Amino acid sequence: MASSNDSFLICFTCGTQFDTTDRNALKSCRICDDPRQFVPPSGQSFTTLADIRKDRYKNKREQYSEDNRIWFIWTEPKFAIGQRAILLQTPSGNVLWDLITYLDDDTAEFIDSIGGLRAIVISHPHYYTTHVEWAQRFQCPVYLALEDKKWINCTEGGQKYRRFIDQQREEIVEGVTAIKTGGHFDGSMVMHWEDKLLIADTFVTVPSALYHINRVPGTTSYSFMWSIPNMIPLPPLEIEKIWGALKPFEFNTTLGAFMGMNVRGRDVKARVLESMKIQIKAEGHPEHAFLSETWP
């Protein structure tokens, strides 16, 4: 599936596409140079969509076992950060949450077969990837937080597709709401649909979230991080802001950034609040006012 962007350089570490083909002009990736990301020990390297298509990469997809209107799409072997995209089949049209870098013919044809895309919503700049490529292929808008506009690296051809969310929340299609929480990035978002919250790594599903039987009191389920790979946590003030943005919404499911990060249960929202309190106490604030927050 060749396109005009096939020769644009893509960071091999984070999957961000830049609107240049000149390897002499682009020596580093400003996404990876930011302290939230990293440059690997082997150094900075770039590829292109054309090269990815020649290699052994293939996109996979799977229906969510709890709701067959939801599809997970990811690339194997792992490319760049390794996140998944999540497709929601809603009565008002299909919405794609977050992106992967690689878009192959099989993925595009599958999405076309179930109605195409009404909109794409991207949680934060680490997943901007090849959003111009996706928007052009499906002729749909891409919603980004206005606060993170400065992190766009592929401007060519994207102006007609990008929509910037400047309020704390915006209804993308009927019943699907993008919610700006901040924290990881100034404009980091989650997305709410029915009883589900798509969280990307705006807050991070941790291993102990997935164990549901005889959970010990005080067991955390989520972490709230400024940098996930470099393990720099958010301070209490930012955690409070995230809760303030989420509190009006009811949900019993979170769908995280990677495969296997699905958490479901009547107590999920309570576990988000509990995890916030655990982190704030662990950061050295045992008397913080937020610890008295309750829900419901």
Rank of each mutant, 00 (worst) to 15 (best):
12 F>S: 15
12 F>D: 15
17 Q>H: 02
19 D>K: 07
21 T>Y: 03
23 R>Q: 12
23 R>I: 09
28 S>F: 14
28 S>P: 00
28 S>G: 11
30 R>S: 13
31 I>Y: 00
32 C>D: 14
32 C>E: 07
32 C>S: 07
33 D>H: 08
37 Q>E: 14
38 F>E: 05
41 P>K: 13
42 S>L: 12
44 Q>W: 04
46 F>H: 06
47 T>F: 02
53 R>W: 09
54 K>P: 00
58 K>H: 15
59 N>Y: 01
60 K>F: 12
67 D>S: 05
70 I>D: 06
71 W>E: 04
73 I>S: 00
74 W>S: 03
76 E>K: 10
77 P>L: 08
80 A>V: 04
80 A>Y: 03
81 I>V: 11
91 P>E: 12
92 S>L: 01
92 S>T: 01
102 Y>P: 00
102 Y>D: 08
103 L>K: 01
105 D>A: 15
106 D>P: 00
108 A>S: 10
113 S>V: 08
118 R>Y: 03
119 A>Q: 05
122 I>S: 04
122 I>E: 09
126 H>D: 15
127 Y>C: 08
134 W>S: 04
135 A>K: 05
137 R>W: 00
139 Q>W: 07
140 C>I: 03
144 L>M: 10
148 D>Y: 02
148 D>M: 06
149 K>H: 12
150 K>I: 10
152 I>G: 02
157 G>P: 08
159 Q>W: 08
159 Q>L: 14
162 R>V: 14
165 I>A: 01
167 Q>W: 01
167 Q>Y: 10
168 Q>T: 13
169 R>W: 13
170 E>V: 11
171 E>G: 03
173 V>K: 05
177 T>H: 01
180 K>W: 03
181 T>F: 00
182 G>W: 06
185 F>R: 02
186 D>W: 10
186 D>S: 14
190 V>N: 09
190 V>M: 11
190 V>L: 12
196 K>M: 15
197 L>K: 04
201 D>W: 05
202 T>N: 01
204 V>L: 15
211 Y>T: 14
213 I>R: 13
214 N>I: 08
215 R>G: 10
216 V>W: 06
217 P>F: 01
218 G>F: 05
220 T>Q: 15
223 S>T: 13
224 F>C: 02
224 F>Q: 02
227 S>A: 07
228 I>R: 13
229 P>H: 09
233 P>W: 02
236 P>T: 07
238 E>I: 01
241 K>Y: 02
246 L>Q: 07
249 F>R: 01
249 F>G: 01
255 L>A: 12
260 G>E: 05
267 D>R: 09
274 E>M: 12
277 K>N: 03
279 Q>I: 00
279 Q>V: 00
280 I>H: 01
281 K>W: 02
281 K>S: 12
285 H>I: 08
288 H>F: 07
288 H>K: 04
289 A>C: 02
293 E>T: 11
